[in-house]
Simulated scan of single mutants.
Amino acid sequence: MLQAALFDLDGTILEVRAEHFMQEYFQALARAVAPVMDVDRFTKALMDSVVVMLMNRDPSLTNADVFWHEFSSRMGNSREALEPLLIKFYANEYQDLAKIICPSPQGRRVVQSALDRGLRIVLATNPLFPRSAIYDRMSWAGLADLPWELLTTYEDMHFCKPCPEYFQEVAGRLELPLEACLMVGNDVTRDMAAADVGMRTYLVTDYLINPQNMDFREIVHWHGTLDQLCRWFSGANLEQALSDSLALDRVRRYVKSFDDSLAPLVFSEATSTVEEVARALGVEPGMIAKTLLFRSGDRNGLFVVAGDRRVSTKKVKQLLGSKPRMATSEEVEEITGYRVGGVCPFALATDVPVYLDSSMQRFEVIYPAAGSAHSALPITFAKLQAITRGTVVEV
């Protein structure tokens, strides 16, 4: 059960390009310290110290401890001279950066929808800034008055994103299991790393950060715009979506153990027909592999069929021994472990014989569901046969 939503700030619920903000921030900071130290030397020491802070894995040191230790080692005994300037900077010049911030009503709306759902909320921005600077950005965004349970700042946190310890530390502070937390962010590398430790993930695509051009559909649980996320929080089927995410994770683990190159794809919206899946993938309907459960007395058979073909009842009867019927949705979930619309033909809850429609061999790649109605697995027919140990039949 989902109990907490962790929200990244810049580019997620705050309408700003992070790289633009950081550029303006460093320039303003350099001007502020110019009276007491060489700007070029300061800037290099600052950037190098931030890199070390990002990489720190020592749980005994806060990010602030790491930063000041590294910065002092590069600049000498300058902390006493610098700290008063920083206090003045954050009280004055830093406030001018508000002009490049666009308060996002949508950002507030999506956080409020999480609260309305009964979720605890965390501001899970990367803890590279002091508390006052983060609070200011929240105020500029119109988010400071919300009942945040935790803000991740550099004074309090011991790790940064994407280190797994960051997400573990947040869950520990909340006294929640990792799977009860949802990480919401726009950075594929930093925010979505939460999935590696067992958190649920929602990638916000309005200001997407994806420098490596990864196919994020292979790693996230859900993705979409802030507007879609707001509707997702407010929807009636949120708990079922969370249950589906566990099925998707089961498929991911199963295929990785079989072939590390296999990875399910996740759609931004659930699909309910072959045509909808085909449109979402940009392929022809025949490439969508329908997985259908038939029952004949006490015998079951799982038929994986090309999206443009129908199963012959006569053929099913020959294979199962008596007149068959389609399983009910309740039977499908009990026997396969998946809901109708998301049935994957392997990693099943019970032992069911699998039959593969031979006509699917005409395609280089086919797409069975991967545990939920918003997922599909690109796979060759040969690999599908190997992983399911299915019998090839003409349907």
Rank of each mutant, 00 (worst) to 15 (best):
S261T: 13
A289V: 06
G321V: 06
V305R: 02
S245R: 01
R299N: 09
R295K: 15
S329P: 15
Q361S: 14
R250W: 12
E333R: 15
L238N: 10
Q361K: 15
R325D: 08
L229Q: 01
A263D: 05
R231C: 15
E333Q: 15
V274M: 01
G341R: 00
I335D: 03
W222N: 03
P353S: 00
L238P: 09
R253D: 15
G301P: 03
E334L: 07
S261N: 07
C344L: 01
Q361F: 11
V283G: 04
L281M: 09
G337R: 06
G282E: 03
F346K: 01
L348V: 04
L226P: 12
L242Y: 13
F267S: 00
K315F: 07
F233K: 01
V305N: 03
L265C: 07
V255I: 10
T336D: 02
R231T: 14
L246D: 10
G337M: 10
K315A: 13
R362H: 13
R279I: 14
V311I: 13
E269M: 06
W222G: 01
M326W: 10
I335Y: 08
L348I: 06
Y254D: 03
K323P: 10
G286H: 07
W232V: 00
L238Q: 12
D249F: 13
I335R: 09
D308I: 00
N237E: 10
V277L: 06
E276L: 03
D227Q: 12
G307A: 10
T271G: 14
Y338N: 00
A270Y: 11
S257M: 13
D308Q: 03
R279T: 11
K290M: 06
E330Y: 12
V255W: 10
V316N: 04
T336V: 01
T271H: 12
S268W: 10
L226F: 08
D259T: 06
A247D: 08
Q361H: 15
A270M: 14
N237D: 15
S234H: 09
